[in-house]
Nucleic acid binder design. Structure first.
Length: 415
DNA sequence: TCTGGGGTCCTAGGACCC
DNA sequence: TCTGGGGTCCTAGGACCC
């Protein structure tokens, strides 16, 4: 008989920063989103100060100074590498592992084992091998493991919800809004009918739930009852949409700037596309003004179908730049732009066109050379001129820590 | 002055077909 | 007075997640 464990890294980004800065032990830490915009991670000390997830950094400048909060820009290279280390460590405990996000994994374990002891062992091993603190929740389903994990963070860091009694108590004391999969919209609907706790939801009528929350909600209710309804996905399936979008460090006010930004984003998206061995049929571009600063709202988007499926960056840049020129209105201040690749197909089953010819072999060779160079010497070592050189619109990361684990020249120094 | 980014899944409704 | 029925496919939009 199986049991599901959910292992979740505590305050992941903040914890990654602390691993390399032991001087920050006990100090509140926050990590900011792109452009040093919003708070996306908070250490336990920062949470205790009442710093909310998602608040704009400029709104809490006073608190930051008063409490000497350590502030970091996002260092995705570091977090991705630390995540890989944590996940590799978790494989020691079960061959059946589903990496759910950068800081969470589901593991399948044998129910006959002493779960609390296993949980402790996971915590101490990951801590010792990577420096990252984790919490562990056990349950018969993913939703219950998730809930157990949530509750574990308020106590010893390990919690199991495997018996009916444990579940009854935990569900009764959990607000329905705290259930995994129940967001603001569903919470409002449920509260209107007097469903306040996770236990109320678990005990609701199937037909009624399906009508109110569709099959997604019904699956969730089954999970809360201990009946697995959410699939186990160990293999990463290829993405069906690949998006790359960014807010600008400085407003873009020219077509040229917009085209550079879009070229940069489509390059990144194409890179991801090639990495999963796919081609795209369609690219959507979008851009808009700043919705916060009182500027006239302005937004445009366009959908471009490629003549044949492609993963060739320079080909994409041409289509994207042409479309941008058609959509762009001079005299606007743009804050954000992005591209989305869709209509994604496997590289092997690609429908060619009779009337559109490109030297596909040449394209493939060029892209493969480009990817190899960037893999070896670092991302964006070689790129297209259309992306611009050191552009002003590029996002700001003014408080970024070194890439301690992935760059020889940024290794930690012990003096 | 300063407000993130990248995904998945489901449903409703329209277009189109026989 | 009478005005079919049953499908598929696509898209936009909503909801949710980390």
């Amino acid at each position: 008989m199986d049991v599901v464990a959910l292992v979740d890294c505590n305050s992941f980004y903040a914890s990654c920063e602390r691993v390399f800065r032991p001087d920050l032990n006990g100090r509140p830490i926050i990590v900011l989103s792109n452009n040093d915009g919003c708070v996306v991670a908070r250490s336990a000390e920062a949470k205790a100060l009442g710093i909310q997830m998602g608040v704009p950094a400029f709104q809490i400048e006073g608190e930051i100074r008063r409490h000497k909060i350590a502030v970091f820009s996002s260092n995705y290279t570091l977090y991705a590498d630390m995540s890989r280390r944590v996940m590799e460590t978790l494989r020691q405990f079960s061959p059946e592992i589903e990496i759910y996000s950068i800081d969470e994994s589901f593991l399948k374990l044998d129910r006959t084992q002493d779960l609390l002891a296993i949980g402790e062992s996971i915590r101490s091993t990951v801590r010792k091998w990577t420096g990252v603190p984790v919490s562990v929740g056990f349950g018969p389903t993913k939703a219950l493991a998730k809930l157990a994990n949530r509750l574990s963070k308020k106590s010893a860091g390990v919690m199991e919800l495997t018996t009916r009694e444990q579940q009854d108590e935990a569900l009764a004391t959990t607000a329905v809004s705290d259930v995994w999969g129940i967001g603001a919209a569903s919470t409002n609907k449920l509260l209107r009918y007097g469903i306040k706790t996770a236990r109320d939801l678990r005990d609701a009528d199937d037909v009624w739930v399906r009508k109110l929350l569709t099959v997604v909600g019904l699956k969730l209710v089954h999970e809360l009852r201990g009946i697995p309804a959410i699939d186990w996905e160990e293999t990463v399936s290829p993405k069906k949409g690949i998006c790359c979008s960014r807010s600008f460090g400085e407003s873009v006010t020219t077509l040229e700037g917009l085209q550079q930004a879009l070229a940069t984003y489509v390059s990144r998206a194409a890179e991801k596309l090639r990495r999963q061995n796919s081609l795209a049929n369609v690219v959507t571009i979008f851009f808009h003004s700043n919705p916060f600063n009182g500027d006239e709202p302005y937004q445009r988007s366009g959908v471009i179908a490629f003549p044949t499926p492609t993963a060739t960056t320079n080909e994409m840049i041409r289509f994207v730049s042409d479309a941008a020129a058609k959509l762009y209105k001079p005299g606007t201040r743009l804050k954000k732009a992005g591209v989305i690749l869709t209509g994604i197909v496997e590289n092997s089953n690609c429908q060619l066109s009779l009337f559109y010819e490109r030297d596909r072999q040449h394209d493939t060779a060029l892209m493969s050379a480009l990817d190899k160079i960037n893999d070896r010497f670092g991302s964006r070592t070689m790129r297209f001129g259309a992306e611009g050189i050191d552009p002003k619109w590029a996002a700001k990361f003014e408080k970024k820590s070194p890439r301690y684990t992935t760059r020889w020249d940024e290794l930690i120094e012990v003096l």
